[in-house]
Structure formats: C-alpha cells, structure tokens
Design a binder for these strands. Sequence first.
DNA 1: CGGTCGATAGTCT
DNA 2: GACTATCGACCGG
Length: 223
Amino acid sequence: MATPEATWFERDPLELAPLLLGGVLRRADAAGAVAVRVTEVEAYRGSDDPGAHTFRGRTARNATMFGPGGRVYCYFTYGMHHAVNIVAGPEGSGWGVLVRAGAVVEGHALALERRSARRASAPTGELARGPGNVAQALGATLVDDGAVLGAADALAGAPAASGGVAAAWSFEPAEAPPAFRTGPRVGVSGPGGDASAYPWRYWIPGEASVSAYRAATRRSRGA
DNA sequence: CGGTCGATAGTCT
DNA sequence: GACTATCGACCGG
C-alpha cells in the first residue's frame, strides 16, 4: 500500500478533504483486513471552528488531532459509537478530516460480521454509511487513536500490552480525484450554532454509501 | 415516506 | 449535570 509521506497530509483540511475522496483507507489486525473507498468526509479546524473538538484547546481526548498529520484520530461518543478521522495540518494545528462514509472494497465478510455482532439482525445495504458504521466496519476503537498511516511494522511491532489489539493502517489516494460536492456538516452545532456557516462536508455525488443529511438535534430534557 | 426519540457513557463546564 | 462530529427503531401521515 502506497501511503503518501506524512507531509502530504500536513495541509489545510479544506484542501485535504477533497483529496481523500475516492482514496482507500485500510485497517488490518489479527482478525483480518477491511478497506473502504472513502465517499464522504468533513473538515474540522481548530480555534476558528466552533464545531471542532479542538476549538477549546488541547485535552486528553483530542491530543492526537494536535499531533502531526497522517495519523488516525479515533474517539468515542454517544456512549456507543467510535469515529475515525485523519489528522491534517502541521503539528499543533488541531486540524483533521472526519471519514463519514465509504464503500467496502476489501474484507466485506469481516465488515458484515462486525456490523452484525452488535445487532439482532444483519444490517442491510451499505456497511460503512455514517461515521459510526465506518469505524465499526473497519473495527476501529480507541486503541487505534494515534495510529500512523502507512507504518509498515505497526502490526508486528505493537505490544500486546495496549489491549492486545494491534492494527496496521494505510491510505492510498485516488489516482484521479473524483468530482465532489460540498454542504453543511452533519450534526454540528457547537458554540457557533450554525452548521451552514461551515459548509465543510465533501462527498462524491451518486454514491449509495453517502449518509443522509441530519441537522444537529437539540435534546430537550426528557419527562 | 419523514420526523421523533431512546440507548448509553465519556467528556467538559 | 448537560451535551455529544450517531444509529436505527418506531410512529404518524
């Protein structure tokens, strides 16, 4: 797998995001490998982006996003979902690109198995539609936070101490970047409140795996 | 169809 | 103690 040099990722996420479309993101561990062709992403910036995790500065959770580009930022949210990002920009920027959807191109059976494991009935349709499903299909968890894309010996070299799960990540850009469209990011409200002020969602039109738009839901207290 | 809501726990105020 | 870069079941039309 020809993952670009780390410097290739160290650019503005608004520039990097469309370059990721059509590329193949791959994760391999002891259970096997799953790869997806990226069809939908969202760019997140730092101090000038109210919707970004890094808006209010560095914390334990978002530390990876402040690291150098070309790494995986994986976080856990809503008490049940993981999400996979590719860190952008130079070290200290707090920039990244969220992988929202992809088409499984390798390890279809394993992806289906993972998606079915947490569900009574097997999922129908796309296996990596939506950020939570992308992470689940790839098998990404918090153990993957900070993983370096293209690190050849990540699988062999990682100590079993870190939870016993070692995975090798890679990303191969598309030879010819596909045409794309942009729009407001999904589920983002943040201090700024207005998702449409940051139309930093990028997707390949016509792809079945692209998730439907959902505005941020404000949860009023129950009963 | 489309809108609404429950599940479930880490993170930050 | 409220909110969350979500998912999918469920309910009404």
